[in-house]
Each structure stands twice: as structure tokens, then as C-alpha cells.
Design a protein around this nucleic acid. Sequence first.
DNA 1: GATGAATGAGCGTTCATTCAT
DNA 2: GATGAATGAACGCTCATTCAT
Lengths: 227, 227, 227, 227
Amino acid sequence: MSVHSEPGDRRPPISTPAQTAKQERILDAAVQVFAEKGFYNARVSDVAREAGVADGTIYLYFRSKDDLLIQLFESRMSAIIERLRVRLADAPSAAMKLRLFIELQLALVVEEPTLAEVLTVELRQSGKFMREYKAAKFGEYLDLIEEIIIAGQRDGEFVSGVDPRLVKRALFGALDEVSLYWLQGRAGGREPYALPAAAEQIWNVCARGILRTAGAPAVLEPSKEEP
Amino acid sequence: MSVHSEPGDRRPPISTPAQTAKQERILDAAVQVFAEKGFYNARVSDVAREAGVADGTIYLYFRSKDDLLIQLFESRMSAIIERLRVRLADAPSAAMKLRLFIELQLALVVEEPTLAEVLTVELRQSGKFMREYKAAKFGEYLDLIEEIIIAGQRDGEFVSGVDPRLVKRALFGALDEVSLYWLQGRAGGREPYALPAAAEQIWNVCARGILRTAGAPAVLEPSKEEP
Amino acid sequence: MSVHSEPGDRRPPISTPAQTAKQERILDAAVQVFAEKGFYNARVSDVAREAGVADGTIYLYFRSKDDLLIQLFESRMSAIIERLRVRLADAPSAAMKLRLFIELQLALVVEEPTLAEVLTVELRQSGKFMREYKAAKFGEYLDLIEEIIIAGQRDGEFVSGVDPRLVKRALFGALDEVSLYWLQGRAGGREPYALPAAAEQIWNVCARGILRTAGAPAVLEPSKEEP
Amino acid sequence: MSVHSEPGDRRPPISTPAQTAKQERILDAAVQVFAEKGFYNARVSDVAREAGVADGTIYLYFRSKDDLLIQLFESRMSAIIERLRVRLADAPSAAMKLRLFIELQLALVVEEPTLAEVLTVELRQSGKFMREYKAAKFGEYLDLIEEIIIAGQRDGEFVSGVDPRLVKRALFGALDEVSLYWLQGRAGGREPYALPAAAEQIWNVCARGILRTAGAPAVLEPSKEEP
DNA sequence: GATGAATGAGCGTTCATTCAT
DNA sequence: GATGAATGAACGCTCATTCAT
């Protein structure tokens, strides 16, 4: 498999006004198929069948199977980022933004588990070759966290002793793994914890840590009653 | 394979005393190759060449390419778990154990980055089919965290408001992602943070959270000066 | 094949009106190749080259190499059985039918020696696994003989002291071996007997036996002058 | 696979006085294994395991897997031919000899079904490459029949209108196929006819044919009461 | 002589991609 | 643009054969 797209590729991505609906159909089908079988075990013809198009049609909209995964990632991440941006704008403080981010992130997993599965599990799967492509949108996503941390530190809400670049990674990893476990438990008939409750717990740990100490409340109040 | 092959044909794993060195050679080679190319993009003959054996020799020790990955995981995880257990036994408190766990975990990444790469990145890659096999050793690994949390809650060191099953996942995910980013940055010429320093920051967040509040020190002292 | 493949993945046989010509091309090629090299020594790519298609194309029409052999057998035997049925319908008596069967059978070997070679030699070759598949069409073929014997016994033309199930086997075996020898002699530059003449002799032995006895003509007259 | 033995082959067949017992053990094992799985589906290591020797030991006694089959054939056929010769010498007439041949042949199948299976089924299987090797011993075997026929014709016992070269083939084929069916039925839980009774019927057909005619007994008396 | 671990050529099968219709 | 039959490179795995011990 060619990992890197050739510069001389003949088939440029198409963006006809109405026929992009078909491109979207293919992307939706890819989400389903990749979530079910994994990227490497999914065949292009599986995606085609799921999308109700011919195998060759895939190649009118995507350069390759790899490109399908990349565009899937770009497309879905853009929507998620946009949505998060809008929602986060309303939160009055960095703490509230961060808490909301956690809640929204896990809510997304509940609302669109199939998409979440592909984004969390299968995107890692593509290993080496995805890393270059992933960077753009994935970095933008992570920057949402970083911006919150930086703002919180600047405004004195957050301690300054932590590197925002580290925290964004750690928080993303925590949410990702918690989501993954929930998704897999969902498929395997296991139900370890409710994701909304998990969001609250994760926030609490982020906010106050797990050490029991005098003079500091162990848990923050729920978001609705926040002053 | 043709219609005629009996299911019982499978070559059982060998465990000759001295020749198991060859099995180990193959596993080491697999770590290198899978880390470099990813499981799905690695060919069995790549592993054979790296191990300095013929292709067919692989199949004297492993049932299939999949089995090679599974045994790799089992073998390496067992060693890591054992090592962690021994080191953690010395720590005097749950807090110290947890801090040590984080440090040791990230130290492992620095010491054996190739192994870490396979364990964090490529094992997720095998997607659906690895999940069953992964369970055993991976669960054992996660239980190391869970046990620390439970003990800490029982002894009053940790707050009781968090589900240990959730925390173990979240912490693992955080460490995993932080490791992954460090590993990838290493390959890509990027150097975002030193892993030992990252361990300290992660511990601080786990311990005290990121909220700046009066009456509680924002950062815990480094481990050497810990009472 | 890897662990992940669903059992239902199998490509079903296609039966597009015009493209079935390609299936026929492949079967013809398989007859040639199997006759020349034998089933086990023939490679799928040999058949593909002979048919003028790519290797993968074989698998658009046949599930496996084994399936190719099975379908070859079914297809060619069906045609032969049909042809025999039509020709045998005209024969006025059981004796004439049996004689005609022998003649037609050996004539087929002369007309289509390559096909005959595969049918007599190579089909036996697939050993254990063909036995189940062979049963259907092969049994139907043998029943042509059995029906003639039974009718002849019922009508008093044939002696009743022989088991039709035995005779059909014995006659088939005799014809098969005689054909095989002729086919091999053909390839090896030997010419032991003309097959049409052999048909007459076999019929004579079947009809009257080889014992010379008074009161019964040792040989029956040729079929054209039969009253 | 190399079909033809190279003239430069290094390993000449061995015939140490006592250790030939091991060669015999291997041949016996080969009979069992080839009968069970077929020549092409049997592995050399299967034969080695059955014989209780190491894989490599096979190659101390046989040049190749093919050679093992050839020597198996030569060895077993020699024994059978010798045995038949001795028994046939006692028969007083050509007719009695032929009848005895049929009886002995089918008796052998009952006595040593495994050997019979290999000889009738699996030897055909080796297709092209066996043909050259087969000739010698197989021809000698067939000549037993031919000699009987020729003698019978010369002495006026048998009609002269049939080619002995043809009859030997036809009779062999009939016996072979009848044996094969019996052997397969034996494995498949079917029991179509007893082989001793089949011998009598086949002899009757050979002797007198199946046509019912006045002035000639339809069935010959059993062998004990033969004048 | 006997062993059996090691070899590596060989092959059946898959599937991303193309292109004639 | 859409199709899907055709392509053929690629790869996992097998097993006859060898050879160091």
C-alpha cells in the first residue's frame, strides 16, 4: 500500500455542489464499516456496499482507501471542533470551559458511539501513515484544551506549574481511554460506569485531585449550581 | 490452505530449554518491526529477516502472525507487570505507590521506547480480534492501578468520591497518550517535554488538581523530599 | 486467511448471461491444464494463463481450486449424461442399449481425449474430498448402466443372477481402465487397440462371456446388422 | 516437486541386512497414511510419525516422497504377484485360473483393505509421474491375466475373438472399481455386496455373459463343483 | 545411523485499484 | 458520472528436504 499520496495523483478531490451528498454517503458508510471491522480488515467494497454505490465510485471521490480515512477524520473532526467551539464560548470561566469540554466530549461518545469508535480506536490503527495527516485537525482539537488551560493559568484560575501541552495530551488520553472502554463494554455487554457520571468524576480529579486534604473541598459542586 | 487440512494439524508451541532463545529472538525482532512499520504493514518475512531466521522458522514457534502479536503482548506485559509489582511493594503509602507507578511507567517509555511504541500504538491496532486476548494481561496491568486506588480510599489517603475502575482507565489513558506523543515527537524531531518532568506534573494534577485554591499547596514537593 | 474473516465473505458464483462464457473458458482451460499436469501439480495461475485471464479472475467464478475441479466435473458430466440419455432412448432393447452405451462411452474418449483424461484420471486424484461431491453426478452416470441392466433383467433379456449394482461398477471400471490405457498409450506412442474395436469386444464378453461352448455363438454380429 | 529422479542423486537406496526392517516400518506407515489422507495430502512427517522415526530418517531409505510411493508400489506388488503366481499354478485349467484370479484378487481387498486402498486409489492419484515407474510391476501384474487368457485361447477353452491385451485391462479395471466401491462403502457405512459373492458374479459374466439364451446355462456352478 | 530444527521455494488467495462500457 | 468485472502484486503459510549435532 502506498502510504504517501503521490504529488502526481490524477484524480483530484471533487466538490460538485449536489453530488457531494454521495461523498457524504460514502463517509457515513465508512464510519459504520470501519467501526465494525476496523480499517485494515474493512474492504473498500464493504464501504461501497454499505454506501449503496459501486466500488469504482469510491475512487471518484477519494484517492485511495487511506485518503478515505483521512478525509473521514478531517470531516468529522471539523464538525466536532466547530460544535465544541460554539458551546465553549458560552462558559464563563476557564474552569467551566474545561468542565464543559469533558462533559461534551463524553456526551458525544454516547450520542454517536459509532463515530466515536472510529475516531478513538481505528484512527490509531493506521499507525505510521496517519500521523502526518492527523496532525492538522487533531492538533486543532487538542488546542481547544490547551487554550482553556492557558487562559485559566493567565487568569489565575489554574495553577501555573503544569505545562498546557502536557495537560492537553493527558486529558485527551484519559477521555479517549475512558470512552474506548465504555464503547467496548457496550459491545461486550459490560456497563462499568455511566459516561455523564464519569465526566463529573474526571472533572473532579482534574480540578482537585484525589488526595484528601483538610481545608479544601474534595469535590466541586455540579455545574448547574456553579455561581 | 485447502479443504483437506485437519484442524488438529496446528503445530503446538515449542518450549525446548535452549532453543527458546530463538523464540525470544523472534519476539525481539517483532517488537522492532512492528514498532517501525506497524503490525498490518509488517510482513512476516520482515520479522524473519530481522530475527535472522527463515520465514518458516517463525511458524515453528508461533501459530500465525496474529499469534506472534498476542504472544509478544503476553510476554512483554508479564515482565512489565512483574517489575512494577516488585518496585511498588516498597512504596510506603498509596500516594507514593501511585506516584511511583506514574514515574516507572514513563521511565519505561524512555528506557525501551521501541517496546513502548508497540505496546501503546500497535496493540490497539489489531482492533477487534485482539480485544479478547488483550484482556487477560492488560486487565492485570490495569489492576495494579485499581488496587492502589482502592487501598488509598480504604486508608483515607484518597477521596472516596471516584470510581477506581474509572480512574485506572483515565490514568492509563493519560499516560498512554503522553507516552505516545513523546515517542512520536522523538521520531519526528520534536521534544515537547521531558518525560520524568511530565511524571511529576501528572502526579501533581492527580493529587491536587489544577484549580488554584487557598489553603492547599498547588504543587506537591518532589518525591525525594517526600516525608 | 486471517482470524478476522467472516465465513460469509465467500464470493458467490456469478451467472451473468454473457460473462458465463468466461466461466466456460476457465473450465476449458482447467480441462487442458489438469489433463496435462494433474490437479495437484497444476497451479491456479496455469489455468489462468491458459484461459487468458488474470489469476484473480478465477476467483470471481470459483470459490477455490477445489471448487474449480468440482464444478468442472459437474458441468462436464451433466453434458455427457444428457447426451447419453438422448442417444440411448432410441435403442430398441436393453441389449442394444448396453452395447450402445459401451460404444458411445469409448467414442467419447476418442472424440475428447483431454476431457476423458481429466474425468478418468484426475478426478480420482482428488481423493478423499472429492468423494462427497462426486457422488451426485457420478451416481447419476452409473445409474444409466444400472437402469439398462434392471430393464434387461425384467424383460428377460439378461440373466437375473447378477446384481445390477455390481455390474454397473464392473462395467464402468472396465471402460475406465481401457480408456485410461488408450489415453496413456496415445501420449506414450503406443497403440494397443482401436477403441471402436475394443467396444465390440467388450460388448461380446459382456454378452456371451469368453468361454467357448457348443450351442451358442461365441460372438454377436456387429450392431448394424443386428435384427 | 521434482517429478523425475536426477541421475546425480547423492543418496543411493540402502539395503543394510538388518536395518531394512526400518525401511519396512516406513513402508507400512506409508500404506496407512496414504490410505487415510491420500498421497498428496499426506505429509512426509505424517509417515515418519506413524513409523516412529524422525523425518530425516525417511530420507536415509528413500530418495524423495515420490520415491517412497514408487518403492511402496514395487514392494507390495512384488509380494502380491508372487503370491498369485504360486496359487494360480495349482489351478488345472485356464478357466479355473481366471476364476481363481478374480477370487484371490477380491479376497486380498478383504484381507488387506488398507493396502488395497493405496494400490487402487492412491496410486492413480500420482498421475503423470507414476506412469513411467508404474509400468514395470504393474505390467507384470497384468501379464498374469494376459497369460491366462492366451493359454485359454491356445487350448481352446476361451473364444479367440478377443484381444488378451484388452481383456486384461478390462478385467483389471472391473476388479479395481468394484474393490474401490467396496472400500469406500466400508468407510462410509454402506455395504452393497459381499466381495466373495461379487467374485462369483464377475466370473459368471466373464465366462458366459449376461445374455439369456437357450442351450447354455445362464450361470455356471460354483467353483467347488466345477468338473 | 538417527535426529528434528531449520530452511526457503512455492502457491492459493485477497483486495485495492483501474478502465472499458 | 457511475459501474463492477478484471487485474495482478502482494503475502501468509506449508512442507519436502537438508544438515549440524
